[in-house]
Computed example of a mutant assay.
Amino acid sequence: MANLEKDEDAKAFLPPPVNSRQAPKSHPIHVIGAVVLFYFVISLSVVFLNKFILSTSEYKFPYPLFVTWFQLVVALIVLLVWSHLGKTNKSFALIPPYEFNLEIARKVAPLTFMYVMMLALNNLCLQYVEVTFYQVARSLSIVFNIIFTFTILGQSTSAPAIMACVIVFLGFAIGSYGEINFSWEGVLYGVGSSAFVALYGIYVKKTLSVVENNQWRLLHYNTTLSILFLAPLVFFSGELSDIAAYVYFLDEFPFWFLMTITGVSGFAVNIAMFLQIKYTSALTNTISGTAKACVQTVLAAMIFQNPISVMNATGILLALFGSGYYSWIRYKEMVSNDLV
């Protein structure tokens, strides 16, 4: 979710689209505005709902691996229903009929491992850090992207992009040092998640060829395999035994409704990103991803009223600026190479 979909926060269930030549967009402004707004609302909802479930709601359900697994199950159910409806209703024809071929699954499995680690570490990070600091904790995916692009693909990076990464790293260092509610666990999980975001973005391009470059077919395999891969982690982590022994609200409908809504929202990110790619330009996607990160930080400060020091605020601003600058540089490079 390569800069994962130009948005590294909540693209939990969507593989990045393949870079391809796009026809110029000429859609009405109100359609473009509605699409971008839909993306903002859905993408922000996933982050805030996850944080709400894990540490700030009346439930304070501190089991991020189980939360991730359950949301994947919800996403798979939605995927199955949607793809089935698409067989008879053209309105749902966006997603092809569900498939699961063992030979293809074997080839997708390495990517799914990265996908699972990305999702699990992401929610673990969100459990331990404030949402205002979340973007900083996850910002190093850009740095890892450059490192892995060079070490794995043997591709060099332009000087302006490297400068953007230096800014991001400075923001990460300053923001971490100035974070009032600092958590080593949260930072380490954020760094780990950033590494797997970068790896996932690189390897997904190779794996898409296995499913004929169809991101929705890849979603079938990724979601199904992720449920299978994550189940042992949930079991051996001790979360299931803790939930059975200490959680008293398992029979409460509001809790499961909240969990289900979050899973549906995670799946809806797929639709939001598809619509944004279809109805807007690459430049709009670049600006939208950066603007969403800024809005997310501001809303988090307002909603959760997290204490922010001057150094923490400086680090957040540097990380956001560096991320936005990097996205802009990558967009300009794509334009110069005639990829958009």
Rank of each mutant, 00 (worst) to 15 (best):
P307F: 07
F48S: 01
V73A: 14
W82I: 02
A282K: 04
V143A: 12
F40L: 00
T149K: 00
V187I: 15
E185P: 05
T112N: 02
S241K: 13
L230E: 04
S176T: 04
V18Y: 11
V108P: 00
L317M: 15
V131K: 01
S241H: 13
I162W: 10
N285W: 14
I167S: 06
I243Y: 05
G315A: 02
D9E: 15
T112P: 03
T56E: 15
V36L: 03
V73Y: 10
R330G: 07
I261Q: 12
M302V: 15
G266S: 14
V211C: 02
Q71V: 09
F169L: 14
G322R: 02
P110F: 14
V47P: 01
I261N: 09
V131L: 03
V36F: 07
I303M: 03
V46L: 01
L94C: 07
F48R: 00
L317P: 09
V191H: 06
L4N: 02
L275V: 04
L230F: 03
N285L: 15
A244M: 03
S323Q: 04
V73N: 08
G263R: 09
M118V: 07
Y177E: 13
I202E: 01
L228K: 08
A75I: 05
I277L: 11
Y325F: 14
Y279V: 04
P160S: 07
T149L: 01
Y63M: 07
K87H: 06
F150R: 14
F148G: 01
T149G: 00
Q305M: 08
S158T: 12
Y115D: 05
G324V: 11
N270K: 06
I32V: 15
T290C: 03
A137S: 14
D9A: 05
S83N: 11
W216M: 11
I42N: 01
P15E: 09
Y134N: 15
V210W: 05
S26E: 14
K87L: 09
W328D: 08
V47L: 00
F321W: 12
D9H: 12
A282T: 05
F61I: 01
G190D: 11
K6N: 12
K107E: 12
R106E: 13
W216C: 02
